[in-house]
Write a protein that binds this DNA or RNA. Structure first.
Lengths: 338, 338
DNA sequence: ACCCCGCGCTAATGCGCATTAGCTAGGATC
DNA sequence: GATCCTAGCTAATGCGCATTAGCGCGGGGT
């Protein structure tokens, strides 16, 4: 391939020539290096700035990155397809937050779309990844690859996970949702309504988000009762067989499916059974029912992740934080039937 | 700021040392330069490749860009907010197409989110833009800034607009929707149903997409009759006053609003009046009515734009193409009332 | 015995910028 | 008048890579 670009672009040297100074001076002016070592009189500075403005010169980001190691570009890696697909809607709000914050901070976002999907999963570290073009990276997805995480940590690459993650050969910086607290609060409300047989419908293990929900549940009921999710009919069977008066649905969609089936069988929600959802739908779950549960502060998580990342890039120390979820009052939780 | 990175990263020199060859050789192997000038025996090549694999070395994209002028990164510039906001839904499908194609081609996407919004508009060429980090750029939005376009053209920066654009100091490469043909077809269908007073409800000027729709309309009716959009009630007045038997709504939302008002006034659609929509909703327009009209091949346009852009980046010549829209049969077009 | 040639590789260069050592006045100091 | 500052610059260097010259060497030709 032909090395140089078609038409010559302006470089600092050009600006220097036009302003009658050295390239160094242009760089100094550009970066506002008016510090002790290099004082540039206002006159010279203005002259340079004028030429820059007139010519519309802009520093080459690649060269900048190479020389200075920074370029105000943040990477975004999504382990699950974001745009296409059903889960897209779930991840969208995170991206909104990320975008908002990046814009605010004058950062561009590099979407690592080139990561190939192998065995249905993506990896940050694939052949020819371009991680290093960005100053740091935000990781998004229900489940992150542990090898990726370990390597990121090992290499000291600045990153922040959206969603809590277990350690991976070192501390993993994250901005997560405080599921334990949110679930704990829901359980408390449920118990306050007289419920004693409160079941947890979900896996309770696997992704950190499931583990955390279950932890919040198990930590606030006397006798945890976990029911596996599955086909709607199966779930209904299990719930009824267990004699639960209230059910916490790990997945919103399962709560919806359960409620639908129950309705068809003449079991009223919340008359006969209360159904509480633990978060926002990660799969499409059309319903007219207004479920009681909580919202994950997705947008805020995205924002905060970018905040933390920029701080990290600028030399700060990695943070791990959980953001509170928002309780949402619905119509599916009612006092236990006497 | 401290010039070097915290922990030293692998460079080609490191690989060279480990493999007992020169940095040049590593570069040659990496880029598969087995051509005439430099022949590297399989043995050496394998040795180098092995070291690369073992160490997980990946070339620094910034350095690569600087030296070779390419880095398989495509920029995406959106003139209108994409993620947040109402119009987001309209632009989403374009992005899906862009993302799909980029993934397929092993390209990463650089979202130019840092462009500040001034006077409610964004500009590609803002202070400190990072255009040059990408090999080229896809432009998205209802209206593009003409100065931006002119400068892009003038500088010979590779870009492709999603949506047809008028020339701007030179040919503007684009992938647009063939509105004239699509509208022409709708008019033909409408006339085939006996309609003679077919009105165009919209501006018919401004953005190219409006102009093109109107052109398709004006070119296929004997006496064009354009009605300005406005408040729902106003639109209904105008349509009724004009004695139209069919209306083409430039904006989907206007078609919806019009139909709603008419229904409330006892004017039936399509019994008394046919309402045809010219494209997908660009603003939220909730309705249960299934409008007759056409769909803009948004996803395909995104894909094609990336195709064209990569071709352009690789030295191809700029293309201008219009993609056909998809006619959608609805319930709002019926034979004219006798 | 000499030259030439092509194979297999490497030294050197430059991309555009940031940064670190100077270097050169012109004054102040002794 | 020699010395030392200091303000105001600039030359030189390197970031990591791609690329262009070109070097050394062994074998075939004359």
């Amino acid at each position: 391939m032909p090395p140089p670009a078609p038409s010559r672009r302006l470089t600092q040297r050009d600006i220097a020539r036009l302003a009658g100074v050295s390239q160094t001076t242009v760089s100094l002016v550009l970066n506002n290096r008016a510090d002790a070592e290099s004082r540039i009189p206002a006159e010279t500075r203005d002259r340079v700035l004028r030429v820059i403005k007139e010519t519309g010169y802009v520093a080459d980001p690649a060269a900048r990155r190479l020389a200075a190691g920074r370029n105000r570009i943040l990477g975004v890696f999504t382990y699950e397809p974001v745009f296409p697909s059903a889960t897209g809607d779930f991840f969208h709000p995170f991206l909104i937050g990320i975008e908002e914050c990046a814009e605010q901070r004058g950062c561009d976002l590099l979407l690592f779309t080139s990561a190939p999907t192998v065995d249905g999963r993506k990896r940050v570290y694939h052949q020819d990844h371009r991680l290093r073009l960005a100053d740091g990276c935000v990781l998004l997805g229900r489940e992150l690859d542990r090898e990726d995480l370990a390597r990121l940590v090992a290499e000291g690459y600045p990153f922040v996970s959206v969603g809590r993650r277990d350690d991976a050969g070192g501390t993993v910086p994250y901005v997560g949702a405080d599921y334990p607290a949110a679930v704990g609060e829901l359980v408390a409300r449920t118990r306050a309504m007289g419920h004693e047989r409160i079941a947890y419908l979900g896996h309770g293990r696997g992704p950190e988000s499931y583990v955390d929900r279950y932890r919040g549940y198990a930590g606030s009921v006397p006798e945890p009762l976990r029911l596996d999710p599955g086909e709607p009919a199966e779930m209904a069977e299990r719930v009824l067989a267990a004699g639960a008066t209230a059910v916490l649905a790990e997945e919103y969609a399962d709560g919806v499916a359960l409620t639908d089936v129950l309705a068809r069988r003449g079991v009223s929600v919340p008359g006969d059974l209360s159904v509480i959802t633990l978060g926002d739908p990660t799969r499409p779950a059309p319903t007219d029912v207004d479920f009681t549960g909580f919202r994950i502060p997705r947008r805020e998580m995205g924002r905060q992740a970018v905040e933390d990342l920029t701080e990290l890039v600028e030399g700060g120390s990695p943070a791990q934080r959980l953001l509170p979820c928002q309780y949402t009052e619905g119509v599916t939780l009612a006092p236990v039937r006497k």
